[in-house]
Structure formats: structure tokens, C-alpha cells
Design a protein around this nucleic acid. Structure first.
Lengths: 340, 340
DNA sequence: TGCTGGCACTCGCACGCGCTGAGTGCCAAG
DNA sequence: CTTGGCACTCAGCGCGTGCGAGTGCCAGCA
């Protein structure tokens, strides 16, 4: 186990390294000057050697200072640093900026710009696009007395099918009836509107069939949710220019990753549900993002998270500040969504 | 006026310069070696001096070769180079790739990827997003006997107002009648559906009012068209890494410009209607794009162009090839849109 | 008049060199 | 366990040099 002071040294290294844009690593002497560690450079050197043995820091080349490794950043984020809260004026600014939004797209657009500006990194906002798709047709087929196949056709031409085991046998006539009622209500309507359009449908059926109808409906609703397209908005790519001074090589795979929406959606999707997640360097499954960190968090209008947002930046980032900004923005976006 | 051979020299310079990624300018000797100009380097030198006097080429520093200026590229594009047609296999590939699209968004997404890949540059596709907005309310106010104000409120909360000079005086009662009929038909409906919903409205009015009703309706339709949101999709930003070897400075403003959708929309909008437009370097109004060229063209499902697409890349680009790709893609996208 | 070869000149770039300074590891003493 | 001292390492920087591609100019030739 690392002693208290060694952790303190690691913290100091991370802070110093992250605090400057210079390509230099941080050395023992500079550390003792900038931080009140209460020990001499020589002691710090010993600690650094120990930290290096443990894999928390590394030297880019012999006789240079040390820089944190992914493992070092991980420890820093987990144990040594909190989330830096936004100041009151910052919070006000966030709120004001988001309050001006006129519709969902505008909210997302503003959010992405805001987040990019606050963190000076690349911002990514994922949001469900419930509004666009509409139902073209719903088909129900009886495969066995208590087994129905549901086929959903959307106006985009996508076809989804589900098997349904009914709680009770379901006659052909009831099935035809349900099919007709269902289509007359939902055909041409938006996914988002479907739940309320069908909620009283079971009432029109005999008591014995209601359970089955309810089952079919809930399967339909589930399918719709899965079909809901997830969209992404990205901003602040110009901040990539601050990456490193060497960066043609660094920046390219990142730009490529940002264009692969699938990659990003997966990235955000993997992150824990609603609590904040930080993925550092090689912790990102996607290889192109191996020298970047992704800070993401869920957000939503009510209590639970319906979507994710976050930023991607160099592993050498100000974690507490970034986490603070991401958390604050997510919170206010949730608030705005709840109001509207 | 420039002699035939001098134009040939300019063409050779542009081709050589564009053909390599090296930061070197092109000199007289190399030119005579790679192109069959039939004259000696010395002659070419004289021609180059003349071309420089006219402002078509420049030398980055004394005693280096020459590189084309914006004016030189302009001449090249206008007079010296045609549009390089795609080969048959390329055309087939384009068509196959686009044929797989399932909906408009998918078409646009595929187009942007395709264009980025073909040209190895940043692709931009603008498309009208007619489908999303709906009308909340239309208000008509009588300001004078033959003067009406039209106020349009959309579901996104946007408000547009227009003055209308009527061909004939229009009574309060007729106005109220029109207002009521109009709203009952279009409230809650999509912009795209409005034209057909109101087309027979004038029939319900007295002959003397029909002219005015028609005027009001056409103003409304115009307003809707203007309100139609224009959306953008961008791809291939990773190609920016091929810009120059110096590029932190070059790339940044370009990334910034790409994020300013307004800038891009304007850029595409300014371009000529349906014929291909090439804006070279400083011809672009937006300063950040002063070292890039934009090749754009209109596309649409029928004969006329409803939207634009194009690429932005370094002024040092393969113009014939890029123009060929842009034109081919626009053509096939139009075809796909017409089919669906 | 226009093309050509020759020649002197320019200057960016790559290479090699030595210096400097920040940083390290190790060691002996407190 | 901490500390000061010491020898060592090495990336980065500035400088001088040679090379080579390229130019402008000029005199001669068709």
C-alpha cells in the first residue's frame, strides 16, 4: 500500500502536469517548490521511484521528469480528487444559456456548444430521437392458440418481429379485432404518441382477452423503445488542436472515432447508468481513443437517465474541473427537459 | 493575353503541385522533365516570370519554385481543366452504396461518407428538413382595407410576420372567415403538408375575394419555405489531417468554420443555383476558409435543385477529380431521391 | 523576335556539433 | 527514514556548414 505522502506526491504530479500545456514532464525539484510537501527533493525522488515501480507514473525518456500513467490518472480520479463544483456565476451562466432553447434540437445543440466551451474539449451529447419515426403498420399472426407473432413496420421501412406467449388462448376473431383497432389508432402516428393512443385498448375487449391484449401492447411498446433511434451531436472539435504539439498522429484516430457514431454510442452506452463515468486512455475499448479520456454521465428529464452526455479529451486533462462541468450541465439539461 | 504555351505551363505547375503532398514548390527543370512542353527550362523560366507578373503564380520565398495563387487556380479551373468523369466502376460503386439507404437521413449519411471517401476531403451535405416542423397557428390582422398582416407561429415557438398588400379591399368578416378556415386546416400539420391542404381554399370565397385569398396563401407558403429548417451533415473531418504538415494553424479555423453551421449554410447558399461552383481560397467570404476551396453543386429529386452538397479541402486540391466526384454523387443522390 | 545554354547568385533545409539545464540514481551521513 | 551531495544522462537549442534546387540575366543563335 502506498503511504499517505506518496499519494500526495502523485496528486501533485498530476496537478502540475495537467496544469501546464508544455510538453515537459514534472521533476522532483519543481514539485517541492510548487507544493508544500514538507520534504526535500531527494525524498520526493525516492517516492517517485516507488510510484514508478507500482506503475502509477513513468518517464518518457531517461533523465526526464515523470508523467502519470493511465493507472496513475485512475488512482487520482478515484481516490485523490473530487469533483470540482461549478461556481455560482458559472451555474447561472449555464442556466441562462440553456433557458433560451426553443425545442429539443436546440437544447441539444446548445448543450453541446456549452459543454465544449466550458471544458475546452470535444463535447458529445447523445439523445433519443423519438419524434421522427412513425408506425406504418402492425401485423399480428396466430402461430398457436396462445402464441402470437407481432410484426412492426415503420415508415423508414424497418421491420421488427417478436414472439409473444399469451397468458390465455386467443381466438382468431379477437386477434383480427385487435389488429384492426391497433392499426386504426397507431398507423401513421409517431412512436412517441403510441403509448397514450393504445392505453385504453384493453377496455374494448372481453375480460378473458384483456390479459393477452395487455401483453401484446406492452411488447409493442418495448419494441418501439428499442427501435428508437439514438442520435448524437458533437461539438468543439476545434479544441482538438490543443491536444499535443505533435498531434497529426494523435488527432487523426480521434477524428475518425468521432465520425463513427456507432463507436461513440457504444462508448457512452457502456458507461454506468446514471452516475458519472470516467474512462481513461486504454480503458476505452476503441483503440483510436487510447490516448484520450471520456467523461460521461446520464441525464434525463425525470429522475432516471434517458440519455448520456460527456466529453472526450486528452488523458492529460483537468479531471475535477471537467467532471464538475459535465455534471452541472447534465443536471441543468435534465431540469430544462423536465420543465418543457 | 497569355500565350498558349504559358497556359500550358500553368497547367503543368498546378498539376505537379497538386499531385504531390510534399511541401516543395515546383521548379522549371522538374517541369520540363515531367511534361512534354517541347521547350527548355530557360524558356519555362521566362514564362514563369511572366505568369508571376500576372499574379497567377508566386514564389513562397526567393529562389524556391513557384506555387499557384488563388488566381492561378481560378484560371486553371475555368479554362484549363475540365471535370474528370468518374469511371464506370466508380459510378457503379456510388450507385450501389447509395441504393442501400432506407430513409432520407440514411441517404444523407451515406452521401456524406461516400463523398468524403471519394474526394478524401471534408464532405458537407445540406438538406431541407421539411418534415419536422408543424404549424401551431396562423393569425391574420387587418391593418387597412387592403393591407393584411400575416403572423405564423410554429410549434417550435418561432414567429414570423409578413405584410400583404391585397389586390382588392378585404372585409373584416371575410378575414375572420379565412382565418378560421385556415387554422382548422393547417393547425398542427406539417409544413410539407400545408400546400395541398390549402390549395382549394379560394373556392370557398366570393369571386371578389379570391384574389386576396390567393395572395395570402401564397405569402404563407413562401414563409413556410423560408422557415424550413436547413440541416447539415458533415463528414470526413479526419481528412483534415492531410492538410499541410504545419497545420495546427491551418486546421483550427477550418474546424471552427465547420462547427458554425450558419457559416456553411451561407457558403453553400451563395453558390450558384444548380451548376457546379468552385470557390477558391480568398473567394470564400469566411476568413477561416481563406486557404481552402469549396466545391459545391445543387442536387434534387426532380429537375431543379432543392439543396446543395459539396466538399471543402485545401486550395491545393485535385480540382478535376473533386468536381467529377461531387457532380457524380449529386446526380446519383438526385436519382435516389426521385425514386423514393 | 523568341528560344536556348551558360553562369553567378540566393537561400531553405538537413546535418553535425557542443553546450546547457533539468532531472535522475546512488550513497553516505544525520 | 530523510537529507544533501555528486556524478551521470540526455532532450532541446543555437550555430555553422555544405548541398542542391531554383532563379535572373545575358549573350548567341534561328
Amino acid at each position: 500500500m502506498l503511504s499517505e505522502r506518496r499519494l500526495e506526491v502523485l496528486r501533485a504530479i498530476v496537478q502540475d502536469y495537467v496544469g501546464t500545456d508544455e510538453p515537459v514532464a514534472v521533476g522532483s525539484k519543481a514539485l517541492t517548490e510548487r507544493h508544500r510537501l514538507g520534504v526535500s527533493p531527494a525524498t520526493v525522488r525516492n517516492d517517485m521511484a516507488a510510484l514508478e515501480d507500482e506503475g502509477y507514473i513513468a518517464q518518457p525518456h531517461t533523465s526526464a521528469g515523470r508523467i502519470p500513467t493511465d493507472k496513475g490518472y485512475r488512482l487520482f480520479v478515484d481516490k485523490l480528487a473530487g469533483v470540482k463544483p461549478m461556481t455560482a456565476p458559472e451555474r447561472r451562466a449555464i442556466q441562462n444559456f440553456l433557458d433560451g432553447a426553443v425545442d429539443l434540437d436546440d437544447v441539444v445543440g446548445r448543450t453541446v456548444r456549452l459543454l465544449a466551451q466550458l471544458t475546452r474539449q470535444v463535447a458529445v451529447v447523445q439523445y433519443p430521437s423519438l419524434t421522427r419515426s412513425t408506425v406504418r403498420h402492425v401485423e399480428l399472426l396466430s402461430l398457436a392458440p396462445a402464441r402470437v407473432m407481432l410484426v412492426l413496420i415503420t415508415d423508414t421501412g424497418r421491420v421488427e418481429q417478436r414472439m409473444i406467449d399469451c397468458p390465455a388462448p386467443f381466438g382468431e376473431t379477437s386477434l383480427a379485432d385487435l389488429r384492426a383497432r391497433l392499426n386504426s389508432r397507431v398507423a401513421g402516428r409517431r412512436f412517441a404518441d403510441v403509448p397514450q393512443l393504445v392505453q385504453d385498448l384493453p377496455d374494448a375487449f372481453e375480460a378473458e382477452d384483456r390479459g393477452t391484449v395487455a401483453t401484446v401492447l406492452s411488447t409493442l411498446l418495448e419494441t418501439l423503445v428499442e427501435e428508437t433511434e439514438e442520435r448524437l451531436m458533437i461539438g468543439g472539435t476545434a479544441n482538438l488542436t490543443r491536444f499535443g504539439h505533435d498531434f497529426p498522429l494523435t488527432i487523426r484516430p480521434v477524428l475518425e472515432a468521432l465520425e463513427e457514431q456507432v463507436v461513440l454510442l457504444k462508448l457512452l452506452g457502456e458507461a454506468g447508468d446514471s452516475s458519472m463515468t470516467v474512462r481513461i486512455g486504454h480503458e476505452n475499448a476503441y483503440e483510436g481513443l487510447n490516448s484520450t479520456s471520456v467523461v460521461s454521465v446520464g441525464y434525463g428529464s425525470g429522475g432516471e437517465a434517458v440519455a448520456k452526455l460527456g466529453v472526450v479529451g486528452p488523458t492529460r486533462m483537468d479531471y475535477p474541473g471537467t467532471m464538475g462541468a459535465v455534471r452541472a450541465v447534465a443536471r441543468y439539461v435534465g431540469q430544462i427537459l423536465a420543465e418543457s
